[in-house]
Nucleic acid binder design. Structure first.
Lengths: 203, 203
DNA sequence: GAGTCCAGCTTACCCGGAGTAGGTTACTTG
DNA sequence: CAAGTAACCTACTCCGGGTAAGCTGGACTC
């Protein structure tokens, strides 16, 4: 970040990445509504119309950020699941990867969860919902292998339960210093495996 | 709603209720960001400064609506739980009451869940979070009676898991015609009781 | 029934931030 | 070097949250 670097022209792809980086940071920190496009532009060392040129609208920028963050998350969990030998192991690895992600990429996670409800336009909402859907589909696939006799509707319900539990749990545990990602994953795993009365297995 | 009725002066409490009713309806329908204060004022047959007089800001109005809706929900679930003979029954009754509420009071529910993330001001966020906290506390109490040997931290995690699962599940199932509130409650009950492999008990 | 008080109400404005029209600059390519 | 175009800018419009300042009608006193 040399001073001479700061006002150089950039090719579109690079500028887009920069804009999304800046946006992700301050959207996650202060919330979508509290951030102005002028501020984002200024921090990029560029004027406002450039952002509109590349992202169309403030909502468009947020959607792009959320989709990118979701893609990262999906990539992490998918990779973790891919290396597993059994279905149970896949589930556990997926959970650990998820909580690790929410712990190490707090900005991205806060961006996704705290701002997706700030969207108003139906198209934007649909696009974000579509990005979230990947998560649900992965869980359905896992459950389908885990309990093959259940009908699709029940698998879908199980997946929704899991996704909701993951989200709330991670929102809660980022403020708790004494709980680790692995513990959260274990807790959830134990509930899924044998209900609330089940013991937490050793890490 | 006679024509002569429409422009009468109202005492503050009554006007506040009317404003919150109007706001709840259109916030839930179109989302916080897409609704203007002028529109709310017009629908109330009153001018904008009146709303500011009573609620301070647009956020203040939303917070008031969310808190009222949360209070309704809390009342329903608490009443349902109160009449139970065993802890297990309390849990089941609470779940059924919850899903019934989200099904029959869709406006209130949509208001709470879809708009709480639209808040930007820290005080507003804290107030809403406080309202949600009641739900978590109830669940902790139930789990504490259910699995008395577990430490507080684990009970808290279980409660977060349950709340998250309830929220996601209800968000999903309001769009599904073939799933009833009772089925959703049963599904969740079965998972909590014996994990994902457990059968759904007969209604 | 004239005076006064104040809760409920209004008009008319400010201002910040989303979004845009139209023009300028510098890099590439023949 | 001329031409073309991708990156960029200045200078606006307009909408919506929020406010200042004043009006009104009914309740309550004397």
């Amino acid at each position: 970040m040399t001073t001479s670097e700061r006002k150089r022209r950039m090719p579109r792809a690079e500028r887009e990445r920069q804009m999304m980086g800046v946006a992700e940071e301050i959207f996650a920190e202060r919330g979508y509504a509290a951030v102005s496009m002028d501020e984002i532009a200024e921090r990029c060392g560029v004027s406002k119309p450039m952002i509109y040129e590349y992202f169309g609208s403030k909502e468009g920028l947020l959607v792009a950020c959320i989709r990118a963050a979701r893609a990262d998350l999906s990539k992490c969990t998918l990779e973790a699941v891919a290396g597993a030998g059994s279905v149970e192991e896949a589930l556990r690895r997926g959970l650990v990867a998820f909580f690790d992600f929410t712990d190490t990429h707090r900005r991205s996670w806060s961006l996704m969860l705290r701002n997706e409800a700030a969207l108003a336009g139906p198209v934007a909402i649909a696009e974000v919902e579509e990005a979230r859907r990947e998560q649900v589909e992965l869980d359905i696939t896992l459950f389908a292998a885990f309990v093959p006799d259940k009908p699709r509707t029940e698998l879908e319900m199980l997946a929704q339960i899991l996704v909701g539990a993951c989200e709330r749990l991670s929102l809660w545990y980022v403020n708790q210093s004494e709980v680790t990602a692995a513990q959260a994953a274990d807790m959830l795993m134990s509930v899924l495996w044998s209900g609330v009365a089940g013991d937490i297995p050793p890490g």
